[in-house]
Design a protein around this nucleic acid. Structure first.
Lengths: 220, 220
DNA sequence: CGGGATCCGTTACGATACTG
DNA sequence: CAGTATCGTAACGGATCCCG
């Protein structure tokens, strides 16, 4: 472990940045909040991070106890958040809230996978009272699946297919982003850019209730 | 303006980090949340940032509309947050919450000024219902003054002396930090490391009420 | 193919010195 | 006080290679 650059300041903010302030680190955590991921999953989601940097960041995160390397069988290893690492969820959510108000710059590239959607959605939903909601939905965004479980006020949003979802919601990333950032009216989004396949009657109302509250939260 | 390194990712988190993710940038904002500051104020608070880096960061922050250069008269200029820049308060607060749980590393240096205290205190207090509180306090931490105004549920915490405070609370930074991070019991802190000079009878109860709630929030 | 390690040119950082 | 200018060093980014 190379001795990392550190602020060495007696201040909690500096101590946080010493752990998660390096370039790429928060984006790695962003993807890991969507569930365990392999090295190459992360590399794809981060579009262009150098392999040695990803190695280095993962080593430091593991050293600081924010993530753990797990043997996933079949000779593959995955990285996943520890309890400590999961506590970065609020920081990441506030970053998403802050960043959502800026227009994308001209030459922008879509992430190599949509783990970020699961992270942002999960973090936002956790800020909303959901005791009255209970469902399991599969979101399909540009063909990628996100498993959203809502039960007893707890939220689980992971980058994976759902087992027996109550409904399947299909949409596209750019439209979803535009809506969540206030650039597109929710009713336009739902009418022109989304499809809802209800498996358990009635659950669509609960799902739309949550999405409405999340949208209100994200767009202020 | 040198073209900055950017993630160029279509993701709100990446867009946020493109603006506030560079090294030192969040610490500069941290200090500015305590009120306008001169170049040398910032340089002192950041203990050892190179002058050219500070110049560069301030230029980028101004370019992105997070801060503004203001003429403060007497030939001095100050930097202060814009409305947009003030929206970084939640990010910084969550960083403080996350970082507060780690023990300081061995060779740690105290910041050159205690603007960070005003920022963290203000951000924490804003997360607490304070409609029932109304007072103005001057905190003196290691001889540096912080002006804390609480009124109608709004909080104003600035790095400056108070005009006509209802009370003056005197303490030391290390003890305050230890208490706010759960390392020292609040009653021990108040008995051995703090002094309360009440100017307006009764306001001390309101002040202690707020401090108790803030401490509960910070220590979980 | 997944999970890195190694090498190397480029960029950013950090310390010091200097200027209006 | 408020920055520039310079320069050695460390970090980053892209490519290539290695190993199971």
């Amino acid at each position: 472990m190379a001795k990392a650059r550190s602020y060495k300041l007696l201040c909690p903010i500096a101590r946080a940045l010493d752990r998660i302030g390096d370039r790429w680190t928060l984006l790695i955590l962003r993807d890991l909040h969507a569930g365990p991921a392999r090295f190459s999953d992360l590399q794809r989601g981060l579009t262009g991070i150098a392999a040695n940097l990803l190695t280095e960041r993962l080593a430091k995160l593991a050293d600081d106890g924010l993530i753990e390397k797990q043997d996933a069988g079949h000779g593959t290893t995955v990285y996943e958040l520890t309890d400590l690492g999961r506590q970065t969820g609020n920081v990441i959510f506030e970053l998403a809230m802050f960043g959502g108000q800026f227009k994308p710059e001209v030459p922008t590239v879509k992430p190599g996978n949509l783990r970020t959607v699961a992270t942002t959605l999960g973090a936002a939903a956790r800020r909303i009272p959901t005791d009255d909601l209970s469902f399991r939905a599969e979101l399909r965004v540009d063909g990628e699946a996100i498993d959203l479980q809502v039960e007893n006020g707890t939220i689980n949003a992971r980058y994976s297919a759902s087992a027996n979802p109550d409904l399947i919601f299909t949409t596209g990333y750019e439209a979803l982003l535009a809506m969540s950032e206030g650039e597109m009216e929710p009713n336009v989004f739902l009418r022109d850019h989304a499809d809802l396949d209800v498996k358990t009657p009635g659950k669509d109302a609960e799902f739309l209730m949550l999405m409405t509250r999340v949208t209100d939260l994200l767009t202020g």
